[in-house]
Design a protein around this nucleic acid. Structure first.
Lengths: 110, 110
DNA sequence: TAACTATATTGCAATATTACGATGAAGATT
DNA sequence: AATCTTCATCGTAATATTGCAATATAGTTA
């Protein structure tokens, strides 16, 4: 197999999973953190920051983009990537909600 | 390849990535949501709830456990799984921090 | 326009993931 | 003790991911 049975789950579950999966790699976490660190979102130097080859970075950027975590705009012959706040908000709200639910339960057997 | 170069990244980056990766599958999101929904964390009926075979569920539970998202305790011949609040808190804090940083910047080019 | 720069795509090898049937292990029930 | 129930593990097939060298694409500059 190796194929995920997305059709059995809700759109929301799939949406969260897609975003989480995109962040499920340390290089992609490092990219996100780098985009946060630099003041303007002038990119491309990501390749110089990370110990990975340019095609590998490009591929990770593509995955982050297709998951909606970052967005890119053309800036001359370079490309300016930056974090898409909406995606982060969705994740934040999701984990906030889980925390609240856990807090409410606290009946706990484990 | 197919092998992630974890050694090039910080422990924190790897830790977040491991948790995100564990949640990067809709079945595992569904499991977490089910554990939140049921009042007591009596499990095993997860298999009845989800459209996946028992070995598949077992494998997903193992991954969630090894990522620290859930913990399990033996309850007779059944096993009681529940969410580990600490992991959720870590994720929540992480995305909160990112949100704050995005908010502070707002210089934004894209 | 030719060369340069920045990023994307292609193609490939190595490894990981997903899924499940068959089977195993351990406590519960009869 | 034999059986049942519950969950884990093994083995295997199909597919996905990771990483990079080579190459392509597109804007920029000389």
């Amino acid at each position: 197999m190796g194929i995920t049975k997305t059709e059995h789950f809700t759109d929301k579950q799939n949406a969260i999973a897609v975003m989480a999966k995109a962040l499920g790699h340390p290089a992609r976490i490092a990219i996100v953190e780098y985009l946060l660190k630099v003041d303007a979102c002038i990119c491309g130097d990501i390749v110089n920051e990370l110990p990975l080859a340019q095609p590998t970075i490009s591929q990770h950027l593509k995955e982050l983009k297709s998951a909606g975590i970052i967005k890119g705009s053309i800036e001359g012959n370079a490309i300016c990537y930056c974090i898409d706040e909406k995606a982060i908000d969705k994740l934040r709200n999701y984990f906030d909600a889980i925390s609240v639910k856990i807090e409410k339960k606290k009946s706990n057997c484990c």
